[in-house]
């Protein structure tokens, strides 16, 4: 009985060509590898997504909660035709992007979650995702929404997305935007980077293990803790808070 029910509950994924990994040099001079993550690697991602559920700023909490659910659904076979790409810097997880195929001609972008900030890692990851939809899967267009102002600037404005407001997006039912093949081709020279093949040593390092993000987003520092307490004019609260966030021993 249980086996039969699982057959009903578990979606049958459509065949999707694998994403060919690529790499690019970041502003820091570090090489970032973009590669597809297998289903059995998902638990490695989940443990790094979970802490972001508690980061309110820049809508990390909302995005992390949804990504967590999507990845878990993918891992437990409760999500149809999803793929997951990871950006890794020397093995370290720098970003996750995911999406799914709605039909052979239509893609749907789910999320872009950057763990490293200030290096355009998220933007590179999003570009790789669009490249996968348009070039590899052969979709004519990809439905997209943004859940943060940063996302809106990065996707809707930079790619000049078209409105598809008559189509509710799977994320929250909000009006969709679309990246068409034509728009992607226009953006290709300025927004889409990456080199192939990935040198074996770089790819091996990425495949070896998904290492924890070295500087993930954290809850906002409260630099005014001392002011708020009014009884801590030495700013000890601030210093202790910073040490705690940096994982330093607290000798104060």
């Amino acid at each position: 009985m249980s086996v039969d029910l699982e057959k009903i509950l578990r979606p049958v994924d459509s065949p999707m060509v694998p994403y060919e990994p690529k790499y690019m040099l970041l502003a820091s001079g570090e090489a970032a590898v973009v590669r597809q993550v297998d289903r059995d690697e998902i638990p490695d991602l989940l443990k790094y997504v979970e802490p972001l559920l508690h980061v309110e700023r820049d809508y990390y909490d909302v995005v992390a909660a949804r990504v967590y659910a999507e990845l878990l659904g993918h891992y437990r076979h409760r999500f149809q035709d999803q793929y997951v790409l990871a950006v890794q810097i020397d093995g370290e997880l720098a970003a996750i992007v995911n999406g799914r195929q709605v039909s052979p001609k239509l893609g749907l972008s789910l999320h872009t979650l950057a763990f490293r900030r200030g290096l355009r890692v998220g933007a590179h990851a999003f570009a790789a995702k669009m490249e996968y939809h348009i070039d590899a899967l052969g979709h004519d267009e990809v439905l997209i929404v943004a859940e943060s102002p940063i996302g809106f600037r990065r996707w809707m404005i930079e790619y000049k997305l078209e409105k598809r407001f008559d189509i509710p997006h799977e994320l929250g039912g909000v009006p969709s935007w679309a990246l068409t093949r034509e728009l992607f081709n226009r953006a290709r020279s300025s927004l889409v980077v990456g080199r192939r093949p990935v040198p074996p040593e770089l790819l091996d390092r990425a495949m070896e293990a998904i290492l924890p993000p070295s500087d993930p987003p954290t809850p906002a520092l409260d630099p005014l803790a001392a002011t708020r307490s009014m009884y801590d004019p030495t700013a000890t609260a601030l210093v202790i808070q910073r040490w705690e966030m940096e994982g330093r021993p607290n000798d104060a």
Partner: peptide, 12 residues
């Protein structure tokens, strides 16, 4: 290298 010299610099 990352902001000026690499093939990705103009995007970075």
């Amino acid at each position: 290298e990352g902001i000026l010299d690499s093939p990705e610099a103009m995007t970075n």
